[in-house]
Design a protein around this nucleic acid. Structure first.
Lengths: 235, 235
DNA sequence: CCAAAAGTGTTCACCTTACACCCATGC
DNA sequence: GCATGGGTGTAAGGTGAACACTTTTGG
């Protein structure tokens, strides 16, 4: 096979920023680094791209290996290429972000893997440039969530409007008027009201909703307007 | 120096999707590939990342080498990593997109380099996955342009409202009402009306405007609303 | 009966759109 | 004087934000 001569070949890694929601708070999934150097420090889920593996395959493999999760929503964030980002050897990293419903995988994670959920405001010190990655991922999540119904990837099958609002508030670090929020959400036609209520967190109980998956699929790229005054909130 | 063992090292390239505007039409800058295999075919500006070069340095160097351009607005688009995207040897490519004012560099380009501008609707067949890159770049340009004043990067120092409108229409493949368009633009406070007129393209002449650079710098991330019914237009 | 959270409607200001005519000039 | 493109205003409907009270029920 012909090859390009005199060119530098570089390690290519994938790092996954995994956001989760447990009904109360936005969280981030981290692992303790297994490789030498900074071993034991907190890190994003990462791994090297293999010989015959493209990015999608690679990111799915890494997620599976480190967390057991499959079929999760993932999207490429950005490639990070600073020369010294990994002090051991130059490594270019393709950052992916993922959104998952924490409860769905809780047990599996806690028992089989050494991954841990951290509240988004209490992230420990991370290795390399992972803090930059997280920062960018938060920004991108905000941006997308302001215009697209991407957030539903974080929700369990059944959820309440107060939970949904808490999620949005936790992403945008601000508070919304619940009357307007509820009206906006209802007007998207993405939600199907259930007959039963969630009664853990209040005496009156809040109606469960389900996502209308058909509507969601067709409206995934639609531009919604769920956030008041987006210009003030998004960078 | 310690290194990671048993991992695949891969060529990392940068490819630049360069959009330009000449006052009439949105265009794309292409070169004829200089390397063997598909030599002579049309291609984006690309090159391999070098040993001690990060992405920003690399993209700037490649742009400079192939076009002579410097100080151009560039932004990372996405990393492309399909295993067979370069049939010679596996190469991961970090795609960047750039926006430039064609007239500013026209002479330089035509004489010194073998780059050529193609109208966005008349792009020739491109090598590798460059057509995918262009498609994604167009999408991203639309998306950003719908909400942010990024488009001004494509404009000469002095420009007219009709030119600006043509640019937007050429990006969004649609037509806008000039009264509303003009009002929206003026309401952004980004424009400074000049005393002189452009008289090439009409008898009456159209007033020149300049960008208020201070406003532009502070409002670069602001969310504007320049496009009517964005939900119908953007994917 | 009281505390705590859920649920719901209205008004007003502003923004967005649709739409048509006059202006300036070169030929 | 006429053809060509530039420039402007208004009215109507729709959207988005602000705002407060009633309901339910567990204790």
């Amino acid at each position: 096979m012909v090859r390009y001569h005199k060119q530098t070949r570089i390690l290519v890694a994938i790092d996954c920023i995994i956001f989760g929601f447990d009904g109360n708070e936005l969280k981030l999934l981290l692992v303790q680094r297994g490789l030498e150097y900074e071993k034991g420090k907190w890190s994003l889920m990462g791994g090297f791209i293999q010989k015959n593996e493209d990015f999608n395959k690679g990111s799915a493999r890494i997620l599976k290996e480190l967390t057991g999760l499959e079929g999760v929503y993932m999207e490429q964030l950005l490639a990070f290429g600073n020369v010294d980002r990994d002090p051991i050897e130059r490594t270019v990293s393709i950052a992916y972000f993922a959104l998952i419903d924490i409860n769905k995988y809780e047990k599996q994670l806690n028992t089989d893997y050494h991954a841990e959920w951290f509240p988004i405001h209490k992230i420990p010190k991370l290795i390399f440039d992972h803090a930059d990655m997280v920062k960018m991922a938060k920004q991108k999540l905000r941006y997308k969530a302001a215009f697209h119904p991407i957030i539903f990837e974080l929700l369990p099958e059944k959820f309440t409007l107060p939970q949904l609002q808490i999620l949005y508030e936790s992403i945008f670090d601000t508070e919304f008027d619940k009357r307007n929020f509820s009206r906006k959400l209802r007007s998207t036609k993405l939600l199907i009201k259930q007959k039963d209520k969630e009664k853990e967190s209040s005496k009156k109980g809040a109606y469960y909703y389900k996502l209308d998956k058909k509507q969601y699929a067709t409206n995934f790229h639609a531009i919604l307007n769920l956030i008041p005054n987006p210009g003030n909130i998004i960078n």
